[in-house]
Design a protein around this nucleic acid. Sequence first.
DNA 1: CTCCCGATAT
DNA 2: ATATCAGGAG
Length: 217
Amino acid sequence: MLTQKQIRYCLDVMGNMFPDAHCELNHENPFELVIAVALSAQCTDALVNRVTKDLFRKYQTPEDYLAVSLEELQHDIRSIGLYRNKAKNIQKLCQLLIDEYGGEVPRDRDELTKLPGVGRKTANVVVSVAFDIPAIAVDTHVERVSKRLGFCRWKDSVLEVEKALMKKVPMEEWGLTHHRMIFFGRYHCKAQRPQCEICPLLELCREGKKRMKVKQK
DNA sequence: CTCCCGATAT
DNA sequence: ATATCAGGAG
């Protein structure tokens, strides 16, 4: 486990590597962001953007998604994985937004989590990106980077990773930290071929040093 | 824990 | 051929 000071150093380095880290899911309002993040489960954001380009032209309000059949919505997002569940969730979610929230996206993490297809990670993205409320969404990248670098324990659950990060990073930096870790994980500390050879954090990365040793043989 | 699931990189 | 992708629900 790294010290708080070492973690701070790592996050600064990530910030220098990716000074423009931001949300890469295209959206123009909170509603579009909810749809985009719900679609993004187990799927690259590049693919989500490709689908939402036409999707957001055709559907602008919760009512729009409910005006078509489930089959039609499935067809409109069929190039995305898990499209049957996602189409069903989107229609239920839209109905709930109309019935319980006046057609608006709630500005509260726990209320968002009540929406079908919206779990803790998705809700954290929405409050953080759309409403600028401090949160750290732990996705596959944040979890992988946290564990490789030693921001948390290897066996930590996703929720435990989130708690560890919230404890060790000042609240006003949660949003920025989240995006820096995403970019670092997506473009540098990748799942399949991490760039340990050129990594500025190799010296204090337990996983990186282990990997470099194995490569020597 | 399993299932959902197409697109892409390796 | 297999692993992975801004996960969530049962």
